[in-house]
Amino acid sequence: MPQHTLNYLDLLEAESIHIMREVAGQFERPCLMFSGGKDSITLVQLAMKAFKPGKIPFPLVHIDTGHNFPEALEYRDRMAQEMGAKLIVRKVEDTIKARGLKEAGGKFPSRNALQSYTLLDTIEEFGFDACIGGARRDEEKARAKERIFSVRDEFGSWDPKKQRPELWNLYNGMIAKGENVRVFPISNWVELDVWNYIKREGIELPSIYFTHEREVIIHNEYLVAMSEFVRVDEGDVIVKRNVRYRTVGDMTCTAAVSSTAATIDDIIKEIQLTNISERGETRIDDQVSEAAMEDRKKNGYF
């Protein structure tokens, strides 16, 4: 009898591909949220494999906050073109103007909350009934309780008390008009799984994931990239450091980590040894309160 063994990456991949195909089978207008970050890059790889030799049967969507790293944007455009995928970009800047929204302000002005407005507008504009996202349950405590198929009302709100039970590998994507489903195919992956998968699949990444010299402000032990979006105050300590990004979000709310990791193997080694979590080390916006993520999700955030 032949050996029927699959390692954990094969098992996780098989599960994620099954979810991708459920999305294609259950929804009329799905889309995949693609930011150029490692998690959404993994999603794109899984989607490509799920529908081979056909093309990915849905467009890629990016909500551009205007605070993105130029390296991530360049990568985003190039990848979409190479794959021949349809890429839709909608800008938070435009929503701010059209709707007269107020910016957060402060030293590191975050557009995280405003992003939800542009996302909801985009969902309405294209009539998306499902948005595939790269959130993982290991990232944060509120995420640990979210379903793989997460139903949102027309305000994009997540109601933890009204979540549908999710049994076996059966996903219920039925919704009423106006509602949409956020789908998280890599829910069961942890940070290291993503890196090991990227290594195994030989996936190319934006350069900011690897070590590079950068001018940063040292703020409460966080290293924040110097950019036109941050406010420099008197007495700020601005230094040049060898850094890399462990996670890629906005320039204003994602911190860099001191690192000399130049290859995927270096990065994997670094993550295996670190004693700080991904969000704890890099997401300035989660430090506001213990329930920061839970609150944002209730307001339509991914």
């Binding site: 549908r164 049994l167 059966l170 219920n172 039925m174």
Partner: peptide, 12 residues
């Protein structure tokens, strides 16, 4: 294994 879905509320 199977699930039952409410036809109008769409809940499991």
């Amino acid at each position: 294994g199977a699930i039952l879905i409410d036809e109008t509320a769409h809940t499991t």
